[in-house]
Every structure is written in structure tokens, then in C-alpha cells.
């Protein structure tokens, strides 16, 4: 029993230490952000690497999530004769929840792992030490542009995910299941609110972007400079990002709806 308590205590200590270190790291990153905007090329490259290179997986996933959503919702709505509401249901689900959350999970798997392993390998091959020796701060030169790139890319990817999801929902509902197209779009226009739904989703994806990018660069930068260390950092990035996104999603939803 004592051993279990001790292990739990060590785990709590470890978590708090890591959390504290990540917040200090965030402060270092934020301090380097203003200067990073003076060199936009570095940020644009990272938006390309994190965002453009994730387009395929985001687009395809969004499309199929939209199709499945439409198929499942159609069968339920048909029981109540409310299949015209398919469009609004798909739009609300995608813009409020599925778009930001699934995009963040996919981002962690595609771009987050790439960021963590790239920075981890840079540490393992002395590239970061090399920069320090050239009087170049690796946090400002390597970490900050990647962090900003991830934050910019995430809302854009979430928007593309939602758009592709709506396209999949339309294809499944209107083209294959013969839902009335006018009702599909009209109900969506009437009931999806720009602020409460669309902007709330963008806000969520922005917050997820901060969490996912921070965890990826933090894990990569602090990885043990061995093959195993980089591997562990990559795994931790995915696990921690997934958990953080799900917890943050609940908290943000509660705040945005105004009820807990």
C-alpha cells in the first residue's frame, strides 16, 4: 500500500514538474514571438510543413467523417420525419465539435509527431548545440517559428476539415439518400450562428493549436538525445496532446455554453 502511495506521489511530482517546465518553456517561446514575426519566411515554411502537408489527411478524414455523420443522422432523423434537419445537424456537429477536436487529434498524429521527432533529432545530432555555439538561440530560431506555424495552421485545417465534412454530408444526404437540397442548405443557414458556432469552433481550434504545438516542441526540445529518447518524445506528444485536447474541449465547451 505504501509503495502504491509512493508511486502515485512520484507520478504527481513528475506531472507537476513537467507541467511547470512546459509553462516556463512557453514563457521563453512567447518572449521570442515578436522577433519571429520580423522573419516571416521561417513562419511561412512552418505553416507549410505543419499545415499544407497535413491537408491530405485532414481533407480525406473530414470528408469521410461527414459522410458517416450524415448516414447515421439520416437513419435517426428519418424515424421522426426530420431528415431536412440533416444539414444543420452536420454543420453544428462539425463546426462546434468534430472539426476542431478531430483536426487537433489528426494534427497531433501528423504534424505534432513530425515536430517532436525533428527537434528531438536535431538535439540528438548536436544541431541545437551547434546553434548555441554559433550564438544562435535555438528556441528563437527553431522552436518559435514551429510553434507559431502550428497555431496558424490549426484553425485553417479545422475549417478545411469542416468544409470537407459538410461536402461529405451533402454528398451522402442529398445525392445518395435524396434529402431535399433546399432544406439541407436553408436550415443550415438559418440555424448555424456565426458567433456561437463558427467562431466558437475557430476559438477552440486556436486553443488546441497552442496546446498541440507547445506539447510537440516541448517534448522534442527536451527529449533525451538517443533513438529511444526521440521515440518516447514522439509517443508522449501524441498521448499528451490527445488527452489535453479532450480535456480542454470539455472546459471550453462548458465556458462557451455557459453551463457546467
Amino acid at each position: 500500500m505504501t509503495k502504491i502511495l509512493r508511486d502515485v506521489w512520484y507520478s504527481v511530482q513528475d506531472f507537476l514538474q513537467t507541467f511547470g517546465a512546459s509553462q516556463l518553456f512557453l514563457i521563453r517561446i512567447l518572449a521570442g514571438c515578436p522577433a519571429a514575426f520580423l522573419r516571416p519566411r521561417l513562419i511561412i515554411k512552418q505553416v507549410h510543413d505543419s499545415g499544407v502537408l497535413s491537408l491530405a489527411i485532414i481533407g480525406i478524414s473530414g470528408f469521410f467523417v461527414g459522410m458517416v455523420l450524415s448516414l447515421q443522422a439520416y437513419n435517426s432523423l428519418a424515424r421522426f420525419g426530420a431528415t431536412e434537419s440533416l444539414g444543420v445537424l452536420a454543420a453544428l456537429a462539425l463546426t462546434r465539435e468534430l472539426g476542431p477536436v478531430v483536426t487537433a487529434l489528426l494534427f497531433a498524429g501528423r504534424a505534432g509527431t513530425a515536430l517532436a521527432s525533428e527537434i528531438g533529432l536535431m538535439r540528438a545530432t548536436d544541431q541545437l548545440s551547434g546553434m548555441e555555439m554559433m550564438a544562435v538561440d535555438p528556441v528563437r530560431r527553431v522552436v518559435v517559428p514551429r510553434f507559431i506555424g502550428g497555431i496558424i495552421a490549426m484553425p485553417l485545417l479545422a475549417a478545411i476539415f469542416s468544409a470537407m465534412g459538410l461536402f461529405g454530408a451533402w454528398l451522402e444526404g442529398v445525392v445518395l439518400l435524396n434529402v431535399d437540397e433546399g432544406a439541407f442548405w436553408q436550415q443550415m443557414r438559418d440555424q448555424v450562428d456565426m458567433y456561437d458556432d463558427v467562431l466558437a469552433g475557430i476559438l477552440k481550434s486556436f486553443v488546441f493549436g497552442i496546446a498541440a504545438s507547445l506539447l510537440a516542441v516541448f517534448e522534442g526540445y527536451n527529449s533525451i538525445p538517443t533513438a529511444e529518447g526521440v521515440s518516447r518524445a514522439t509517443t508522449r506528444t501524441v498521448v499528451l496532446t490527445a488527452l489535453s485536447v479532450l480535456v480542454l474541449n470539455f472546459m471550453l465547451t462548458a465556458v462557451l455554453i455557459g453551463e457546467v
Partner: peptide, 26 residues
């Protein structure tokens, strides 16, 4: 450190930059 040059065991070249860009980096 700007007045020091250091040659690492494995070179520590930045792998995403060409030879030219590596030398131009500092």
C-alpha cells in the same frame, strides 16, 4: 561565442539547409 568556432564530432550541420546555406547561417 561569436568569436569561437566549434567543430562537433559529427559536424552538426543543419540537415534542412544546403552546404552553402549552412556556411552562410552564422
Amino acid at each position: 561565442r561569436k568569436r569561437i568556432g566549434m567543430l562537433f564530432q559529427n559536424g552538426a550541420l543543419l540537415t534542412d539547409l544546403s552546404v552553402y546555406e549552412n556556411v552562410a547561417f552564422p
